[in-house]
Computed example of a mutant assay.
Amino acid sequence: MIPVFLTATVLLTAVFTFLNGFRDVSSAVAFAVRSRALTASVAVLQAALFNLIGVVLAFPVAAAVGTDWMHLPSGTSGLSLLVSALASGIVWNILTWWKGMPSSSTHALFGGLFGAGLAATLKGGNDIPQAADALWTAVGLPLLVSPVAAFVLSYALVWPVMWIARNIQPSVVNRRFRRAQAITAGAVAFGHGLQDGQRTFLVMLAALLAAGYDDGQSLAPMLVALVAGAMTVGTLFGGWRISHTLGHRMIRVDPLRGFVTQAVGFALQFAGAIGLGWPISTTHTMTAGMWGAGSNQRFPETNRKVMIRILGYWVATPLATVAMAFIVQMALTALL
């Protein structure tokens, strides 16, 4: 059964990664397209390219981090946890895309891992050792802190940037910041690939270890090709439902505030991936950052109903994936 579950894990990882690129491309391009810094086609092509570069560079980072925070049981017991988590994340990502709501694939994945581990424990099997502590310190806390940091930093940085541009004509300011947005949109896509590629590689490495293979270094080219290919293809297809919500329905901002949001988002992504080893949700940081930057204007045009719905989906994401993964794992445990 180990080859069957390993194959299922690989296939589900590919689907999950495709959906990650498909949905999260909106976070990188929505504001640049909305402010006309980039056309939609150019923005998606740029996002796909920089996503690809970020994913390729993510593998050595993931290999250095290792899977110490997630010691899976060996054999089908460990692989079934990943199957349950990935399946629940895929279902939730499709649902939120259909609703046009930005939500975190990272929250969905780790919520699924927690739900699957809980089911395994209740069934008397091996759970993920110290799962609660690991998920909180390595995943939960960073994912809660990052959107708050994005909101505060984006709100605060609007003032100094506006002060620098205070003596420049508005048309010139908008033109210059559209150009800057074109650059930071690529940076956000690169940060997304670096962040989410790293987590996908960690799942793949954990699956190989649970299946009894080596640490994955010998399979590095195959893993990189699979993850980078799935992420890039997903990005090229693009999930414009969510992009419309972020760029048009949530809040209206100018190119200056769009640039601030993207710069803050990339800085948090890069610091999390390289400096702190924290998982940072691109969707959460970009959404919260735009909310913060857009709130710091004389007449903020925040659509409060949309923001309340978005926040509701953020809260529901870990709860829903915990529940779905719990059910799937209970079913798989009964079959094993």
Results as ranks from 00 to 15, higher is better:
T39E: 14
L157Q: 08
A47W: 10
Q130V: 00
A165P: 05
L135M: 14
Q130F: 10
S146Y: 08
A32W: 01
D127S: 15
P102Q: 05
V145T: 09
W136T: 13
W98M: 13
A116V: 09
A149C: 12
A116I: 10
F59T: 00
L122D: 05
L122E: 12
T76S: 15
N167W: 12
A63D: 00
G115R: 10
L49T: 12
A131N: 03
A47L: 09
W163A: 15
G140A: 12
G115P: 12
G66I: 01
L157K: 07
L38A: 03
L122R: 12
P73M: 04
G124T: 10
L95F: 12
S104G: 08
T106E: 01
V83Q: 02
F50P: 00
P160C: 03
A64P: 01
V44G: 00
H107I: 06
I168H: 08
A43T: 06
V61Y: 02
L135T: 07
K123A: 14
L45S: 14
F114I: 15
A85L: 12
S88R: 06
A108C: 07
G125T: 06
S154R: 08
A150I: 04
G140Y: 05
G125Y: 04
V44T: 08
G54E: 01
V152M: 05
S104K: 09
S146N: 11
S80W: 07
M101C: 10
R36T: 12
P160Q: 04
L45A: 15
V33C: 07
M70W: 06
G111P: 11
A87D: 09
L143H: 07
A149F: 04
A149H: 05
V42G: 03
G140Q: 13
S84K: 01
R175M: 00
K99H: 07
P170I: 04
V33D: 02
P147A: 07
A120N: 11
W163V: 14
A108Q: 11
S154F: 05
P60L: 01
G125F: 08
F151M: 09
V173L: 01
I90E: 04
P129F: 09
A134C: 00
H71C: 02
A47M: 09
